[in-house]
């Protein structure tokens, strides 16, 4: 019995196919000899490890080794970048970071920059993630409706995701700077005096939040849109037959069924938000003052950019931030597993 679907016809073999395959077959035959010998020695499991080796090597060279080196930096002191010129200090960097009279008041900490940037990051994460999920949800709900030019609008919302974060930062800096497009438009339309959006604490924070939302919302909206489209339309029709009000449909049907996607968006959004750097750095440079300096910027400046650079302290801070990200990743994995189990039921 043929497995071919009805109506599906075999593609006629072409002569060129055979010709193209000759060198491939020749190479395969050459490789086959040592591979067979190796398989006899290593067994099937050993072969699987063998084929995974290139990937594992890339992971080790570019992730594992730097991580270990980073940890070594965090337990050494000095301003030197080469390890052989650095000296062992044990947990001193971590002790310095946590040396505070009050964690709620960064000025009482030895490493006040770390705590200022941590506080800024925490505030940024809470506001940015909450607003982004809201905007992504509204966007997905609108794009899920049968509106004119739906594909076009989906592309429009996704487009910023394709831009480099630095480009995003530069575009918005040109728009928001004192001589930027926004002030020009406000002046031309309403006669408003130019305002320094990026040098006002609150406006700069709002700009950092707004710009990162603009740049990323398309990606998260897409995840939610996929979730919305996976909800069978018969459920809505059943709800319609049941005389369900729109708000009740949203809160009792759409939202619960979208929860797995919302959870993914929440955790991915948190992870990305904690790592905020490029857009915000290009946009505000961390200013005014340190009001938009986030943890990644603190680590970068401490390790590489400041006059009194301290690679050890930067490494210790990055490991602490890494720990937060590991926790968030574990939450995401646990949530994914829970969803998979639910899906199986």
């Amino acid at each position: 019995m043929s497995n071919r679907h009805e109506g599906q016809e075999a593609r006629p073999a072409r002569r060129s196919d055979g010709l193209l395959l000759i060198p491939v077959k020749a190479v395969m035959q050459v490789i086959d000899v040592p591979l067979r010998a190796w398989q006899r020695l290593a067994g099937l499991t050993g072969m699987a490890s063998f084929f995974l080796l290139p990937n594992m090597a890339v992971f080790a060279i570019f992730v594992l080794v730097p991580f270990v080196i980073n940890f070594v930096y965090s337990v050494t002191g000095g301003t030197e970048i080469f390890l052989d010129q650095r000296f062992y200090v044990g947990a001193a960097q971590y002790r310095d970071i946590f040396d505070c009279r009050s964690y709620l008041d960064p000025s009482t900490c030895v490493e006040d920059g770390f705590w200022v940037s941590t506080r800024n990051t925490a505030l940024f994460v809470v506001v940015q993630v909450a607003l982004m999920i809201l905007v992504a949800l509204v966007t997905a709900l609108v794009l899920n409706r049968e509106i004119a030019g739906r594909s076009f609008w989906r592309a429009v919302f996704f487009f910023p995701v394709l831009l480099s974060p630095v480009v995003v930062g530069l575009i918005w800096r040109w728009i928001l700077q004192r001589q930027g497009l926004l002030n020009l438009v406000l002046y031309e339309l309403f006669g408003f005096e130019p305002y320094s959006w990026l040098t006002d604490r609150n406006a700069a924070f709002a700009a950092a939040v707004g710009v990162t939302i603009w740049a990323r919302v398309g990606f998260f909206a897409l995840i939610l849109l996929a979730g919305l489209q996976a909800i069978p339309k018969e459920l809505y029709e059943a709800a319609e037959m049941d005389g369900t009000r729109r708000t009740r449909v949203f809160f009792r049907i759409t939202l619960p069924l979208l929860m797995p996607n919302l959870l993914v968006v929440l955790v991915l959004g948190l992870i990305r938000s904690v790592q905020v750097f490029d857009e915000a750095y290009v946009l505000t440079g961390g200013g005014p003052g340190t009001s938009t300096m986030y943890l990644t910027q603190y680590i970068y400046e401490k390790g590489f950019a400041s006059d009194l650079r301290d690679p050890g302290l930067a490494a210790a801070a990055s490991i602490l931030m890494g720990a937060v990200l590991v926790v968030l990743t574990l939450v995401q994995m646990a949530a994914s597993r829970r969803n998979e189990k639910k899906g199986e039921r």
């Binding site: 069978p232 018969e234 459920l235 029709e237 059943a238 037959m241 009792r252 049907i253």
Partner: peptide, 9 residues
């Protein structure tokens, strides 16, 4: 209405 896919929540 009873749907082909049951349409149970």
């Amino acid at each position: 209405m009873v749907f082909q896919s049951y349409a149970l929540y």
